[in-house]
Design a protein around this nucleic acid. Structure first.
Lengths: 336, 336
DNA sequence: TTGTACGCGTTATCAG
DNA sequence: CTGATAACGCGTACAA
């Protein structure tokens, strides 16, 4: 079955191809009768516009790109990834954009894939998950005048379009919440030290301590990866050398590890030890005790990012902005 | 900055555009010197091929599509979705294909989006997550001679390319495993009755009972959705009217609900009640007791599906096949 | 080994 | 209101 093109429709409706094109684009200057005839011909022949050809002449693909690297996934942990995609995909569909996804094994590859999509003109713009400081890429994108937006934030470069949850505020609120619930000494199980998110959360943690009139005690902070075991070990190590009565872990899996370590040491949660996690993984409300955690509106972040990128692409004079998404503490059984 | 095209390179290297094109496609009949000159020109001018233009002339996009509808996601539950995408995306990249993702709110929309991608020639083929019987779509795709592959299986239509985990076998093995561990009466918390996966799992369950010389007792089966609460309620209801000492739940969240219900009723898991879940959500090895569960190699399924679709697209005389992926039981603390 | 000419399916410009 | 015509960037017969 041959592809039916605009020409076939034109022939069938006895008009010129341009007229058919006009009908497709709802051009006003077209007589109702021919309009009618053309539409019938399209239906009759089963015509569907070829978006590739259209892209070629319009120099627009109506497509946005998203690169996912495995480290990114690890960094943002479980629930982040599907939520972001869902948010982006639904907005894309709403705005009649396509979404192309590229996988990358590491940051070098992520970098390369992002540039490739743009340079090959496969996409009009891209969304970057900036879990780590990848400022080279950002600079290159800026130099090329490429359209892009960050989810997360760059450490050094300012004034670029991004949507981020406020990690400083989130950590601040979590620690503050623990204080309010009567816990006095809060330990922090942070992510990898080099991550922007880790640094931000540390900042928030410090701020809360300061406000409570407490000095910052470096030995109450552990840098780890995001596994259960990391959380367990970190907690054990902390308990070996320090006294404290609460833990803020920057990931739910870490928090679960901390919970287990505390319990294994004979501590009662939440009475002897309060624990707050991060991300609100669907599972953690069903463990015992249910985990108090910080929820970030992930889907919404994806939506905002997509919406903003599409505005950047379509509106000549809009260059994006910084959108900070507030987080929320969900009190559950792991804090009193 | 204007787009640098093949013509610019040609002019710079003082050859014809077709020569440049030949260099790009590594045509053998090209002298080393001009080859060299052209490559330098490309580098010098920063040339990158325009995939859109290439697609138009080749009538191939080198792109595969994936439609996700929200019900699909719910049906396949948590870990399925990101794993499948990861598998597909990594193979796509490996094979130099792009992946475009479309979101859909319901099955009607999923249907529409799938056809749209194909008809607009945005993609060369699509991957369908067939959690429910959507045979119309499949028939239409067949009629259009579209390239596609299913993840999961169609209930009625046979001989279509698909990759599936063997749900019959998986359920059979789970129940068999419980029997071997000394449990005698196994209840089944199934998914929604109309899902193909639910039906398959029921079949496997029955098969295991039969082999154990037990009759099938309809009142030991509950049809539910996939939430924690569903699992909890189903278990409570079952316990109200029947005696049994083990539960096979077709989703980890369901199993967690069952676990809680059993514990709330004063039963000891795994001694008084054995529980087996499904999916191996990363979280469930960290609850207490850790959940015995059936693992399906999700990423691998995505990879196989992508690889097969790409073969279908690229190899003239290959039309796909059925690939059944074996599952695996992970014994943990919720069974003795 | 290389160049010329045409076509892929559309849209945009300019006449009429 | 409509129709030629020329792009968009590339691949490929056909010639040379």
């Amino acid at each position: 079955m041959k592809n039916v093109t605009i020409k076939d429709v034109a022939k069938y409706a006895d008009v010129s191809p341009s007229t058919v094109s006009r009908v497709i684009s709802n051009s006003p200057s077209i007589s109702p009768e021919t309009q009618q005839r053309v539409r019938e011909a399209m239906k009759k022949l089963g015509y569907h516009p070829n978006v590739i050809a259209r892209s070629l002449v319009k120099q627009k693909t109506n497509t946005i790109g998203l690169v996912l690297s495995r480290p990114t996934k690890a960094a943002f942990a479980n629930p982040f990834f599907p939520g972001i995609i869902q948010g982006i995909a639904s907005v894309a569909q709403e705005e009649h954009f396509s979404l192309v996804l590229a996988a990358a094994k590491d940051y070098r590859e992520e970098h390369a894939e992002a540039l490739k999509m743009l340079r090959n003109r496969r996409v009009d713009g891209i969304i970057l998950m900036a879990s780590r400081v990848n400022d080279d890429l950002i600079k290159q994108l800026q130099d090329n005048r490429s359209k892009f937006i960050l989810i997360g934030r760059s450490l050094e470069i300012k004034d670029i379009p991004l949507v981020n949850n406020d990690n400083i505020e989130a950590a601040y609120k979590a620690v503050k919440y623990l204080h309010k619930r009567g816990y006095e000494k809060v330990a922090l199980i942070c992510g990898p030290e080099e991550y922007v998110v880790s640094q931000d959360r540390l900042t928030g943690y410090k701020k809360a301590l300061e406000e409570a009139g407490q000095g910052f005690d470096k030995s109450l902070v552990m840098y780890t990866n995001f596994t259960f075991e990391d959380g367990y070990d970190a907690t054990k190590k902390l308990m070996a050398k320090k006294d404290f009565d609460a833990i803020f872990a920057v990931d739910d899996l870490l928090a679960l590890g901390a919970l287990r370590a505390a319990q294994d040491s004979g501590l009662k949660v939440p009475d002897d030890m309060g624990i707050v996690g991060f991300n609100d993984d669907p599972m953690v409300s069903y463990v015992k005790p249910a985990l108090t955690t910080v929820r970030i509106p992930i889907v919404e972040m994806g939506e905002k990012a997509a919406r903003m990128l599409i505005r950047i692409i379509t509106e000549e004079d809009y260059n994006g902005e910084e959108q900070i998404i507030p987080t929320e503490i969900l009190p559950r059984g792991s804090t009193r």
